[in-house]
Computed example of a mutant assay.
Amino acid sequence: MDHSLDPAARTLDSASLAHLKTWVGTTETLDDTVTAAPVQALSATLDRDDPPPRTGTPLPPLWHWLYFLPHPRQSALGPDGHARRGGFLPPVPLPRRMWAGGRLQWQPGNPLVVGDAVRRTSRIASVTHRAGRTGDLLFVQVQHAVHNARGLALTEEHDIVYRAAARADDPAPPPMPADQGAAWQRDIVPDDVLLFRYSALTFNGHRIHYDRRYVTEVEGYPGLVVHGPLIATLLVDLVRRQRPGARLKGFRFKAVRPVFDLHPFGLHGAPSADVQEVRLWASDHEGGLVLQATAELW
């Protein structure tokens, strides 16, 4: 099967949709070990002053994204830097791919810690089509369950959206204004070094995050795209900075629009009165909403 991408592809015919839906129910199981080096490296990338991690150090929330990484051979990469379509994920021919959001739940009393041998079981839960203003959209939901030797540690639902490549005459969606005046705030300068380091840590070859010529000339973005998972991780890090020792019970997030390395962006947090729930969001330099999230604390 040819999994190459057609940059002009904007719609999916009924036969293609039916074929892609056959991926529903596909499963994958991966094993890994929570090693210390990625934890120390992400701490430095987020500009934290954490003590060196040791065996038994709890893994901060969302940092499990440093593990279970795919390692496709160089010859198996597609033109966008991702592995060629097919395999566990369906071979969607639409060229743009984005991690659009997710929902996570941590189990009480069983944190992931450095030194854990871990297993992640994954399942394609749904493949959903929608017609958009500038072409078709295809949503793939993946369900993950992560176990260590003590049992289930966390569950996750991961939303991926595929869409057509941008055209010069596509209408630009108006930005959604972000709320102002949050109790917790922090500004982030997303330079290309930060994006490179996060891509390296997550073994993410997607060229939109580090290849300026590709991202501007091929995918039509104005600058390097800041990773959605990085923004989500920074929002959780905002909670950790404001409430050291806080433990997350649940987290859900949704990407609203991309943000680029051309300008700083803001992190915002509005805790509830009992600080058991924190509404979180990121805004661009013009005050537009970039990503919204909610964190539930134990």
Rank of each mutant, 00 (worst) to 15 (best):
G101Q: 11
L89A: 13
T128P: 03
G78K: 07
R85Y: 02
V118M: 06
P91S: 08
Q105Y: 03
P90V: 09
L89M: 14
P93I: 06
L104I: 15
R120M: 14
G115W: 10
A76T: 02
T121Y: 01
R120G: 02
R103D: 14
S126W: 03
R103K: 14
A117M: 02
P108E: 05
R133M: 07
R130L: 06
T121K: 04
L104A: 10
G81K: 12
Q107C: 13
G81W: 07
P95K: 12
W106L: 06
R96M: 04
R103P: 00
Q74G: 01
Q107S: 09
T128L: 11
F88Y: 09
R120V: 09
G102K: 07
P90Q: 11
Q107D: 04
V127W: 04
L104E: 08
R123K: 15
L89K: 08
R85T: 03
A117D: 13
R130E: 07
P79R: 14
G132Y: 12
I124H: 06
P79D: 13
R119D: 01
F88K: 10
R73P: 00
G78S: 08
P95W: 11
A100E: 05
H129P: 07
Q107H: 06
V114H: 05
D80G: 12
P91T: 00
M98F: 11
T121V: 10
P111S: 11
F88C: 11
R85V: 00
A83V: 11
W106Y: 13
P93D: 07
A117W: 00
L77Y: 06
R97Y: 07
R85L: 04
Q107N: 07
M98V: 14
R73T: 01
P108W: 02
P108H: 04
A117H: 12
L77R: 09
R133T: 12
G109K: 11
V127C: 12
G115N: 09
F88E: 08
G109T: 08
G102D: 12
N110Q: 15
S75K: 14
Q107I: 11
V92L: 02
S126Y: 05
L94Q: 08
S75L: 03
G115R: 04
A117Q: 13
R123P: 00
Q105F: 00
R133W: 07
P79H: 03
S122L: 06
R96A: 05
R123C: 14
R85I: 00
A83L: 13
R133H: 11
P90K: 13
P95V: 02
I124N: 06
P108C: 09
S75R: 15
